[in-house]
């Protein structure tokens, strides 16, 4: 199975890349977009989604895969 991790910049952190993408979208005539945040997406092949493994992965996200000072993360198993 797969663990899908989405990492996005925290709301309080300026995201210049997101801003640039938003500007470009507007430029290209794609209206109706309010805000853009550009983050990262990681796909991990994993053996289980047991509570124990979820805790392990959560720790990895907190300690290594994201930087809690500037980023939020979200994990989904599929």
């Amino acid at each position: 199975m797969k663990a899908k991790i989405t990492i996005t910049p925290k709301k309080a952190v300026l995201d210049p890349q997101g801003k640039a993408v938003l500007n470009a979208l507007e430029h290209l005539g794609y209206d109706g977009v309010g805000d853009v945040r550009v983050g990262k997406y990681l796909e991990l092949d994993v053996a289980s989604d047991s509570p124990e493994f979820r805790r392990t992965l959560d720790e990895a996200c907190h300690r290594f895969l994201s930087n809690p000072v500037i980023e939020d993360y979200h994990v989904e198993f599929e």
Partner: peptide, 17 residues
């Protein structure tokens, strides 16, 4: 050093990208 927690804060992409 910031990543390691020895210094506070973080460094993100330059404003002009």
């Amino acid at each position: 050093l910031c990543e390691a927690g020895l210094l506070p804060g973080a460094l993100i992409r330059n404003r002009e990208l």
